[in-house]
């Protein structure tokens, strides 16, 4: 692993656009600097061996193109709300989407900031929960309804996070979930030219690498 130069060297590792603590993710990206060229598959296996259960390395790609973090233009989130019917959630989401803007306040390192949630939302859809999923809690038996909000959010500064979306739903539609939401980031990457589809952010590196994994010299 490579270290930064200077008086207190730090490992060269950067977490691009990391998900907030307490939410699940299926699409996190980490850039790691190494000292010598390594086999990506070997790195993947060794990292997997060291990581605790539940943290899996999905793929390792040699970075052959610059500005990786800038490619993470948007995220698709799944916000699972136990004890909420699909209709209730859909009404609240419709109200939010009908707004021109939905400002909420959040304490950031720079002080209290006002953030417009609405302008960052590119698409929102309400679906029923997977009937096999278990989301029973002490207060919510498993027979209760559960609605899921699938939402595509543009990466802006400051970042609009899933709890900001919930704050906006509370603010514009008085929507208050009975128990905390279970949130999962499903996808991250560049937006397709039209619409709200998220593409593979590693695609440029994969393309640069050619079929046998060696870099293609332009």
């Amino acid at each position: 692993m490579a270290f930064s130069s200077g008086f207190s060297p730090h490992p060269r590792i950067s977490y691009a656009n990391a998900a907030p603590t307490g939410v699940a993710s299926e699409a996190e990206y980490v850039e790691i600097g190494v000292v010598t060229r390594c086999d990506p598959l070997d790195i993947r296996q060794r990292l997997d061996a060291a990581l605790p259960p539940g943290l899996d390395i999905v793929d390792v790609v040699e970075a052959l193109t610059p500005d990786f973090a800038a490619r993470l233009e948007a995220s698709r989130w799944s916000i699972e709300l136990a004890g909420v019917t699909r209709a209730t959630l859909a009404d609240a989401v419709d109200t939010l989407m009908a707004c021109a803007e939905a400002p909420i306040e959040r304490m950031t390192k720079g002080g209290l900031r006002t953030i417009d949630v609405r302008s960052a939302i590119l698409a929102a859809e309400v679906v029923d929960s997977d009937p096999d999923a278990t989301h029973a809690t002490a207060e919510i038996p498993s027979s209760s309804p559960c609605a899921i909000l699938k939402v595509v959010v543009r990466q802006v500064t400051p970042t609009v996070r899933p709890d900001d979306i919930l704050a906006a739903l509370r603010s514009v539609a008085d929507f208050v979930p009975p128990v905390p939401a279970l949130v999962t980031r499903e996808q991250q990457g560049p937006l397709a030219a039209e619409g709200v589809f998220i593409q593979d952010p590693l695609a440029p590196d994969r393309e640069s690498a050619g079929a046998d994994g060696t870099p293609v010299v332009p």
Binding site: G22, T137, D163
Partner: peptide, 18 residues
């Protein structure tokens, strides 16, 4: 897991250390 998003430093409660 339901209440961890509501507390400070939830990472301290999840275990799974090396």
């Amino acid at each position: 897991e339901r209440v961890l998003p509501l507390v400070q430093k939830p990472i301290q409660y999840v275990g799974g250390e090396v």
